[in-house]
Nucleic acid binder design. Structure first.
Length: 838
RNA sequence: GCGGGCGUGGCGGAAUGGUAGACGCCGGGGACUUAAAAUCCCCUGAGCUUUGCUCGUGCGGGUUCGAGUCCCGCCGCCCGCACCA
């Protein structure tokens, strides 16, 4: 064996060996239990970044471990390959989006290979290839047939310069993020997926996802936003249309002192038609910003329409205001305002001097308690509320709803925040929506046998707008129904559709259909899904919806795609900067010489400011390139770093010192493995025990994704073996240690394992644990006096209580601490501690 | 405002209610060497009157023989959502 482990030559050699042996190819026909380990597939931006390395290393350790434990493991990789950056590159550099994307995929695949991930590359897929998106079109048509896809007019953000629809995230301060042009609201016919049909299911389903982070479940719950209440109408007193309102607090109906409608509400429009003042007010409302900060500070503003409505119980006339805090998109766009028990209404009423009535109080005695500058939204009992008096909030809600339904002026209703999913994008680089517009037949689905509808290659990005729409020939087709000339749909699908079913295609990818349900049933749900928290809502909700939709139309059985979800933390790095001419200039880690108490710029030797440890970003230059790290330290060192120290859900601070420490440990293990000697004899019980305990503990740690703890235990075991005298036990321990680290440092492990001549360690089994060796025969007992540690005793495991007590009392240190005091009580926890209470 | 999470040495972090600080990093000292690298050994929470003692897990209370851990009340930080009626 060489003195040093040389990753530069070993890494590629073993990567080739795994490929050759097809170690990680999942066998659909296997009799073994299945385990599907999946990390969120990357967007092919061109380079792997360190966050990918962390994500994929975690998944890789789990996948390799599961294989060792005898599972048939599916651990695939693919590319979320459609999207805007490819079109931007096309516009900026004149390259074709397809060529750009495929080059990036080739680069990134090579990078992933250099990291030694145990992936089944035979199932690799890219969403931009017709073999994938054609099947997606077919699924889209299936959903259409079942009424889960529809078209409707909808307001969108329209960039008049780029001539395209922008996502909300692409509108910055009312302007297009690329063009800088003022964004217009336009009404366009858009394709929608009926996710709202699944609102209840998606919400209910969350409670079955007990292996998902609480945080993600809560975020989805809030996003779906279920609320129950009463929808009812107010009769007009001095005009001619009813006002429909929705309230989650019908119990407070006797506290209503006005009605507020949104600026876009028909009643507001009606008033504006005859009042310039009202019109001006409505315009002002529309101008108001919608950012969080603006909303927080925005003053409640209103316009009295002069209209009055009649309270359904008291018959009192309530004024109708147009108010800037009422949203047209939620509920009915109009609210019953109860200032005493809603903070917004309270502020509004205070400003416009409207009555603030108390209708809920802690008790009947508090019925006339004044408000202390804010609304009381909490629970209590009803007061000043006629037939509701004395009821709890819950009782009163039910009572009012029942009465409204009886009397026919309202009904109990569930309202959702969730909107249907608009999937139309006026872009080239996406899945063409498989429909044809015919003047005679209307919107006609493309017959399945004509799929895939492929993207044309010859497209022009020199002018703004959708290249598909202005392509000379592509959109001109004959209607599949009547045969007359017709027009192809030129919108493409939101890329979130592509990522909503890729995990199914990984499990099964026949040529002639999206997947084989029997294969899906074998692999799904994904046992462990790992990715970033940034996908907590959109991707994870869409994927859940898509899975349920396919289940509903009978394509698959599984309802939830991801059994266990893990969201990993970011990789962070300190920021180096210097102020020059009043501007902050940033420097990358490679330009910096880091010392114990500061940092200097290599170029001029002058100090730079060491800033906060934050997420790696190009603008702050605090980025490290995984490829360079692999080239310098080897794949195993960077993999080990990704697993060390920080718990995987928290941020991981990158440091030069840290990666060097990891590289040192790789060599330290190498030297230890070289000491494996089959000729030595003799038993070392302590080493045996330590190894078995570590094997058991590391297995538990990996299964719970506690990689940092597994790493610590491996360090500990390494230290113990190093210090032990040569023995058969020690040699056996070295061999087991090798197996333990093999999921984490597979290259080093293969190189060392080769000495045994037993084939690849990638195919080896996880070491067996002897339960008898998990327990120590000697234990250290803590001896406390009045709860304070005074001494420790080393005794045989299982020593009797009485004996422990006697031994404790015999201790000189204990006697000194007691200082002659009488022991009144003795607590003995066998094999743990003795506490003497004086 | 609502929801979720976090708070332990110089740093990342360990600790089924039972010896706080495992393990790693940084730092200090030493060995080996002509020298360096590499490697190995020792020290490394604070304080003190240093065989040992006192204090110490954001702050204040409580439960307990015993609390980083459980309960109550605060403070601070991070993340997500948000005029959702």
């Amino acid at each position: 064996m060489n003195e040093r482990f040389d990753p530069a030559q070993a890494d590629t050699r073993w990567q080739a060996a795994w490929d050759e042996a097809q170690c990680f190819k999942a066998d659909d026909g296997s009799a073994k239990p299945r385990s599907y380990v999946l990390e969120m597939f990357p967007y092919p931006s061109g380079r792997i970044h360190i966050g990918h390395v962390r994500n994929y290393t975690m998944g890789d350790v789990l996948a390799r471990y599961k294989r060792m434990k005898g599972f048939e493991v599916l651990h695939p990789m693919g590319w979320d390959a459609f999207g805007m950056p490819a079109e931007n590159a096309a516009m900026e550099k004149g390259v074709h989006p397809g060529g750009w994307t495929r080059d990036n995929i080739a680069n990134m695949k090579a990078q992933l290979k250099r990291l030694g991930f145990a992936l089944d590359w035979s199932r690799e897929l890219a969403t931009c290839e017709p073999e994938y998106y054609g099947q997606e079109q077919s699924l889209f048509l299936d959903l259409y047939e079942h009424g889960l896809v529809y078209r409707k007019e909808s307001a969108v953000n329209w960039d008049p310069v780029d001539q395209t629809v922008l996502a909300n995230e692409q509108v910055i301060d009312g302007r297009g993020w690329r063009s800088g042009a003022l964004v217009e609201k336009r009404k366009l016919s858009q394709w929608f997926l009926k996710i709202t049909d699944f609102a209840d299911e998606l919400l209910e389903g969350l409670s079955t996802l007990d292996k998902w982070p609480e945080k993600v479940r809560t975020m989805q719950e809030n996003w779906i936003g279920k609320s129950t209440g009463l929808q009812f109408h107010f009769k007009p007193a001095n005009f001619d249309s009813q006002i429909e309102v929705y309230s989650t607090r019908p119990d407070t109906i006797f506290g209503a002192s006005f009605v507020a409608v949104a600026a876009e509400h028909p009643v507001a429009q009606q008033v504006a038609a005859t009042s310039a003042e009202a019109q001006a007010f409505i315009e002002e409302c529309k101008r108001g910003g919608t950012t969080a900060a603006e909303l927080e500070t925005a003053e409640k503003l209103g316009f009295d329409t002069g209209f009055r409505v009649v309270h359904p119980f008291t018959g009192a006339e309530l004024p109708v205001y147009i108010a800037n805090f009422v949203l047209m998109e939620y509920g009915t766009g109009a609210v019953m305002a109860v200032p005493g028990h809603d903070q917004r209404d309270f502020e509004f009423a205070t400003k416009y001097d409207l009555p603030i009535l108390r209708v809920v109080a802690a008790s009947a005695d508090d019925a006339d308690k004044p408000f202390e500058g804010e609304a009381e939204a909490g629970d209590g009992i009803c007061v000043h509320s006629d037939f509701l008096n004395g009821m709890s909030v819950a009782e009163a809600k039910a009572t009012v709803i029942a009465r409204a339904e009886n009397e026919g002026w309202g009904e109990g209703k569930t309202v959702w925040r969730l909107r249907d999913w608009g999937v139309s994008r006026q872009r080239y680089w996406g899945t063409p929506i498989p429909f044809i517009h015919c003047e005679v037949c209307g919107v006609v689905p493309v017959p399945k046998k004509q799929l895939p509808v492929t993207l044309p290659e010859d497209v022009d990005f020199s002018t703004p707008g959708n290249p598909l729409a202005r392509h000379a020939t592509w959109k001109h087709v004959d209607c599949p129904q009547c045969g007359k000339p017709a027009r192809r749909e030129t919108d493409t699908l939101d890329t979130f559709v592509d990522s909503s079913w890729y995990f199914l295609r990984f499990a099964s990818q026949p040529d002639d259909r999206p997947f084989d349900p029997a294969q899906i049933a074998q692999w799904l749900p994904v046992e462990q899904y790992i990715g970033g928290i940034e996908h907590a809502i959109l991707h994870l909700l869409y994927a859940r919806f898509w899975t349920r939709a396919l289940a509903r139309i009978g394509k698959i059985e599984v309802k939830e795609p991801f059994g266990s979800l893990f969201t990993q933390g970011m990789v962070t790095h300190e920021v180096y900067s210097r102020k020059e001419d009043g501007r902050e200039i940033y420097f990358g880690p490679s330009e910096i010489e880091r010392t114990a108490d500061g940092a200097t710029l290599k170029e001029d030797g002058q100090p730079v400011t060491v800033g906060k440890v934050i997420k790696m970003s190009k603008s702050k230059k605090n980025v490290v390139d995984p490829d360079e790290i692999v080239a310098t330290y080897g794949a195993d060192a960077i993999r080990w770093f990704m697993l060390s120290d920080s718990p995987p859900e928290r941020d991981l601070p990158w440091s030069e010192a840290g990666i060097e420490g990891c590289a040192r440990f790789v060599q330290r293990l190498w030297r230890l493995f070289a000491q494996h000697d089959v000729a030595v004899e003799g038993e070392d019980k302590a080493v045996d025990r330590k190894v078995h305990q570590t094997v058991a503990a590391v297995a538990e740690d990996i299964e719970s994704l506690g990689f940092n703890k597994a790493v610590a235990r491996i360090y500990e075991l390494t230290g113990v073996i190093e210090k032990a005298q040569p023995s058969a036990s020690r040699s056996a321990a070295i061999r087991k240690l090798l197996l333990l680290v093999s999921p984490m440092m597979p290259h080093l492990a293969e190189e060392a394992y080769a000495e045994f001549g037993e084939g690849l360690i990638a195919n080896a089994a996880w070491p067996q644990v002897d339960p008898a060796l998990l327990v120590e025969d000697e234990v250290t007992i803590a001896v406390q006096v009045k709860g304070k540690l005074r001494d420790t005793l080393t005794v045989a495991k299982g020593t009797a209580k009485e004996e422990l007590e006697a031994l404790a009392l015999a201790s000189e240190k204990v006697q000194r601490a007691l200082d002659g005091a009488q022991v009144r009580k003795v607590i003995v926890v066998p094999d743990r501690l003795v506490n003497l209470v004086a």
